[in-house]
Design a binder for these strands. Structure first.
Lengths: 199, 199
DNA sequence: CGTTGTTATGTAACAACGTTATGCTAATCT
DNA sequence: AGATTAGCATAACGTTGTTACATAACAACG
């Protein structure tokens, strides 16, 4: 009856998201225009609207791709017999991911493109990434390293510190690379000390 | 020989910054256009360019006004004999300020308007606001409540946690108002525990 | 007091943006 | 093979930031 609808699953979709990712990483959110994304991919802007509805739809895909990358970085962190060390390793993976692509990090945790704001459905899709952190915290509690507490709540605490530090770092408020790294490690030391079970 | 240049110090300047602040607070960064700001003030867009150079110049002024407001909120926090309680009060003032005007908070600590990025000179102007926090931390160290440490470094740690929590809160990731408040208080309890001097 | 040089401001236009109406192309089903 | 319809390009619309131009206001000088 009709031409097949590879609309949602075509590879053009992936190419556009990829081009958008490259543009964002290289030149920042201001360079992320539908025209440039289309041009880089060798198609017209119409493709973006056909495949994603509007620019926010494309950005939404880039947003989710960012979280997938973060989830992969988390998955690559080995699990040892020291739950606290594992938690700190997760933190370093989070930090490395942020520093590797600052603009993408801002897209994931800030709001550099006013037209895009993750809705509830989108927010739900990134929950698994956060759950990795919750699980690592739960291990620390179960093995008696942390004082008793609901792992989810403790994870929020750690997440807040991590995000705050990355945010300051990307703004250049933490000094040079070495100094920034020291801030990170020392801040997590303090946080771990606060979470530790009483001796 | 010439007309006086009230260019930099006229009250029109203040009116435009004010109108921009109202627009940002009420409708968010997408509504902050030079045309609307000019229209609200009853002048033409040219005035913005004459007084501020470009849109980023106007936004820069709004940015600084935001930090002045925060500094005032900090100054209104009374100083008691309990330095840790005073520090926590400073934190609550920070939080209240963020929740009172989320869009302004994002302008101050995020990057919702790509055209505006605070340069080094602008960043230097907001240092005094941060110094208030450093001073409060220094008291905690001097009076033996906190373990010895450089106050500036400890303040960064606290600032990171505060910003991370506000950021999550404004994104709605902390649940309802009561739950968000509990997250804040508990997170600061943990941080204070980590900073405390050994008994 | 009028001329002159400079500033303040409005008008109108520019390029670039997000978006959409229109229509051609080509792939699939009957 | 012909009909049907998704996929995409062309070209336009309205809005954005910005600027060239013109005009009006004002202070200093003759």
């Amino acid at each position: 009856m009709a031409r097949p609808r590879n609309r949602d699953y075509g590879e053009l979709r992936h190419e556009l998201v990829d081009a958008g990712g490259r543009l964002l990483a290289a030149e920042g959110p201001a360079a992320l225009t539908t025209r440039r994304v289309a041009q880089e991919t060798g198609v017209s802007t119409t493709a973006v609207y056909q495949l994603f509805g509007d620019k926010a739809g494309l950005v939404r895909e880039m947003f989710l791709a960012g979280f997938e990358r973060l989830a992969e970085a988390f998955a690559a962190v080995p699990r040892t017999s020291d739950p606290v060390a594992d938690l700190l390793a997760l933190g370093h993976a989070y930090r490395a991911n942020a520093l590797a692509n600052p603009h993408l990090y801002e897209l994931m945790f800030g709001r550099p493109i006013p037209a895009f704001q993750p809705d509830a459905a989108t927010a739900a899709l990134i929950q698994p990434t956060f759950d990795t952190l919750v699980a690592a915290v739960a291990r620390c509690v179960q093995e008696g390293e942390f004082a008793p507490g609901e792992p989810y709540v403790l994870a929020v605490r750690i997440n807040a510190l991590a995000h705050g530090l990355c945010s300051l770092d990307l703004r250049g408020a933490l000094g040079g690379p070495d100094e920034a790294r020291r801030h990170w490690d020392d801040a997590f030391d303090t946080m771990m000390r606060g979470l530790r079970a009483a001796e």
